[in-house]
Design a binder for these strands. Structure first.
Lengths: 163, 163
DNA sequence: TTATTAAGGATATTAAATATCCATAAGGAT
DNA sequence: ATCCTTATGGATATTTAATATCCTTAATAA
């Protein structure tokens, strides 16, 4: 079980979009170039972010994408779910009802979801809760210590130049 | 991102194997029949459990599988990882190094894994920690309240008859 | 008017999941 | 000894999802 590469791309793109100057937009072409990924396919990930309401877009020259909300209000979970969907990682096909020892159309046990599925769904929730706990703002804080001042300045300049 | 159906099958099979009488084995055929899944393919999941050391097998008539350890000592994580592998759900391809603003061969930022990957890996760990917290013994306890006494008796009888 | 851009549909390519089948070797039953 | 049952593992087929690429359309700014 592996997340798509578009999840990685979307997270990095949002991290960059958090640094776009107010009122400006950064186009797909720049984001693709910056991250070294194919522009056409990255575009699909950005469209998913747009449909999820995480980013706003505008057309024409000087068009592109920007965050639709403050970095504090966009979590990793928002981004992951925009690309991967909200469906649980565990799909229960209720094979328990194939069990020859359970009467057909049993209502007692059917009332509650499968015990195994309940555990798997709790684990899925633990994963999502952790993703929800980190925002683009937290990521920005982390990058302040991860990257040296020179690099941060160069990135800010590059983004300003392309937006 | 979705877990394989073999994960669901493996979990249910281990739940049943936990009820196999001491010194007996339950064959693939019985497990496949019980769960209504294709025997040949289920066999691959059982082989994975065997290779992970979670179950033991023996050949010939009255052969099959049984748990290799006590139900208290087998977690959901053990079973999930036996089938899905131990690799993280998030794969970092380090696209940060494609960034034109980071000097080539930068050692400062390379010393630490990507900030985005670190968050994704923590979420992956939260998922695994939750899976590790539930064992086949806990599952057995849950089923005591999920299933009525008659059904539990019928299942125990069916397993005894086929092992 | 022209160049630039996002949106979205169509299609191709590649990889993974989901099986099925068969040969082999080992263990019980007769 | 012989035969039936079983796990193991390899080979292969089928289906589905991931990973793209291309093209048309419509909107926007210069």
């Amino acid at each position: 079980m592996q997340l798509r590469n578009q999840v990685e791309w979307a997270l990095h793109c949002c991290g960059i979009l958090a640094g776009v100057p107010d009122g400006r937009y950064l186009p797909t072409k720049a984001l693709a170039e910056f991250h070294g990924v194919p522009k056409e396919y990255l575009s699909k990930a950005l469209q998913a972010l747009s449909q999820a309401g995480l980013v706003e877009s505008t057309l024409g020259p000087s068009g592109g994408y920007r965050l639709a909300r403050a970095p504090e209000a966009i979590s990793f979970l928002d981004i992951v779910e925009a690309v991967e969907g909200k469906a649980s990682t565990f799909v229960c096909t209720n094979i328990r009802f194939n069990n020859p020892c359970v009467p057909k159309g049993d209502c007692t046990s059917a009332a509650r979801p499968c015990a195994i599925a309940r555990v798997m769904w709790e684990a899925d929730k633990a994963w999502r809760d952790r993703l929800k706990a980190t925002t683009l703002a937290s990521l920005g804080q982390t990058l302040m210590t991860d990257l040296d001042a020179d690099t941060r300045t160069r990135i800010a300049g590059w983004v300003a130049d392309h937006s």
